[in-house]
Design a binder for these strands. Structure first.
Ligand SMILES: [Mn+2]
Ligand SMILES: [Mn+2]
Ligand SMILES: [Zn+2]
Ligand SMILES: [Zn+2]
Lengths: 145, 145
DNA sequence: GTTAAAAATGGAATTATTCTAATTACTGAT
DNA sequence: ATCAGTAATTAGAATAATTCCATTTTTAAC
């Protein structure tokens, strides 16, 4: 059966898509659902595997198409570190990412308003930043393994 | 003729490599030289083109090998934004990158110690960050085009 | 100069992602 | 409900940055 989003997620989802004149299809809902369901910053491949459990006929191209759409609607953020496959994150609050070099896991790191302001203040006059990306990498918390 | 590094760059170069038991070859010097020479955050492909002007026989594999070596020695930093090709930067001071979405140019943005500390302070207890990457993207300074 | 290790080379392989052309699913008039 | 037009999905081919591999060349040590 298709992924069932919570009522509030379903509303956000449908609303964000319709605002851009796009359709809330079951594939898009499912991709969004699996990203919300397990917030481990999955890759497109991970998402493909998970989506297939709910909608077995789904193609890889569709997963990529859906991801592009969801990112375009601002429902999901892309996380790029090094040259590794892009990962996807449904956390829309200002946050950074920490990648454990041992396990490969990616953790969310909240950014407080004060630090965020300081970061913004780095940008020289005449530049307009639409996007900020802050990534850490190193040894992660071993207790979380 | 092989690229001629300034005396001080040549010293840093040879010293950093020898510290790791690696040889300061002319290809490595040339790759390092072109990165120092034009600090526009070139891609491997850009570097390949520039290196060939000095050492025409150089292969693409060698450029990648040299870049890996230079990064491993800490002489050069990799800059990854989105999924675009990796770019290389010889600026070893703490700095962020701003990518102009219109021209694709990448600019260095200095990070003051205070902001750097605040950023470090975001990292949760138990995590040890070996690397920090801060990237902005948006509209760059049109006067620099 | 000989020998052994390191580096460079050319080309093949890998792989995440994008593209293309064909099919299917919606939408919204009629 | 039917039809037409558009949007979305699909399977597979194509792309492109990077890595790998086998071979040759260079270098360093003896
Ligand atoms: Mn898989
Ligand atoms: Mn070129
Ligand atoms: Zn995240
Ligand atoms: Zn830089």
């Amino acid at each position: 059966m298709a992924f069932s989003l919570s009522p509030s997620s379903k509303h956000t989802f449908a609303h964000s898509l319709r605002e851009k004149g796009l359709r809330p299809t079951k594939q898009r809902a499912c991709v969004y659902g699996v990203i919300l369901d397990k917030r481990d910053h999955p890759t497109a491949d991970d998402i493909f595997d998970r989506v297939k459990k709910h909608l077995p006929g789904t193609s890889f191209a569709t997963v990529y198409n859906c991801l592009e759409t969801l990112v375009g609607c601002g429902l999901v953020r892309q996380v790029n570190m090094d040259r590794s496959p892009t990962r996807y994150c449904p956390n829309l609050t200002p946050h950074a990412h920490f990648k454990c070099t041992q396990t490969g896991q990616i953790f969310d790191v909240q950014i407080d308003q004060d630090t965020l302001s300081k970061m913004h203040a780095l940008i020289p006059k005449g530049f307009l930043a639409e996007n900020i990306d802050l990534c850490f990498s190193g040894k992660g918390d071993s207790s979380t393994n």
